[in-house]
């Protein structure tokens, strides 16, 4: 059980502080999968970071009754001067996990071959993503935090990830944050829309998605607001497909 209570977070901006999360509370039980939709900059990633413990909220609490992963597929903690193997060893040490078993698992899953013994800075972005995902899979958590995971390597690898995360670990709790409505719909059983610091919860996808569309609809048209263009573009395109399958 994860209990989030009255979570408030503000960031300093030029003229004062901007409220990103405004007194958010919810519970997440074991095995529940929460999908959070929201526009870019709505605070989805901030929420994930606070739940993961990397950042502190201004007020409120996160009570983790189960083990919570770091944001999945997150590769930022790589020390690029170190080899893939060294990074696996580091994670194994931090989480007190068996290094020999882990390195075997990563070797098999990420398919990096001899590159595992090379500094990460020599990797291509695809290779880094594969290593990052593989490392995320070596430590077992009760709850996985997933932040915009869709673009991991080629189609074959994406499929492997799918299998590893959503098939083999179907009993785990998850919090998935995305602006890709289809992805959220396919993998979650609870939904929420984050807007203006508030979370709107829905047990079904349809009302959540309707709200999400509503909120997006209020934003300026794509051609006049370039920062919203990339996310509204594909989503509006995928709306009919979703509606037919739902």
């Amino acid at each position: 059980m994860i209990r989030v209570r009255n979570l408030t977070k503000t960031y300093p901006v030029r003229d004062g502080r901007r409220t990103i999360l405004d007194s958010i509370s919810f519970d997440l039980a074991r095995g529940q999968k929460l999908g959070i939709l929201g526009r870019n900059g709505a605070g989805k990633s901030t929420l994930i970071r606070i739940i993961s413990g990397a950042e502190r909220p201004d007020s409120g609490s996160v009570d983790r009754g189960m083990s919570v992963s770091w944001p999945l597929a997150f590769g930022g903690a790589f020390q690029t001067a170190l080899t893939g193997r060294d990074n696996v060893r580091f994670i194994s040490r931090i989480y007190n996990s068996d290094f020999e078993r882990n390195i075997a698992a990563v070797d098999e899953f990420a398919e990096l071959g001899a590159y595992l013994h090379e500094p990460v800075r020599t990797y291509s972005s695809g290779m880094r993503a594969r290593l990052a995902f593989a490392i995320s899979m070596i430590i077992e958590f009760d709850c996985f935090l997933i932040d915009e995971i869709s673009a991991v390597g080629d189609a074959r690898f994406a499929q492997k990830c799918q299998l590893e995360l959503f098939e083999k670990r179907r009993d785990r709790a998850m919090i998935i944050v995305s602006h890709d409505a289809a992805y959220v719909r396919d993998h979650c059983d609870h939904f929420a829309v984050l807007h203006d610091g508030q979370m709107h919860f829905h047990d079904d996808f349809e009302p959540a998605y309707a709200l999400f569309k509503d909120l997006i609809g209020w934003s300026p048209p794509p051609d006049t607001a370039p920062e919203t263009a990339p996310e509204t573009g594909p989503q509006t395109a995928s709306i009919p497909a979703i509606q037919t399958t739902a």
Binding site: R5, F26, H190
Partner: peptide, 26 residues
């Protein structure tokens, strides 16, 4: 999962010995 009231969940803290071991490892 709901916007529930502020019932604080008190859990016994991690034993100090364990915490020290974790910190040493980290």
């Amino acid at each position: 999962m709901s916007a529930a009231g502020a019932t604080e969940l008190r859990r016994a803290p991690v034993p100090l010995g364990t915490a020290i071991a974790v910190q040493r490892r980290v």
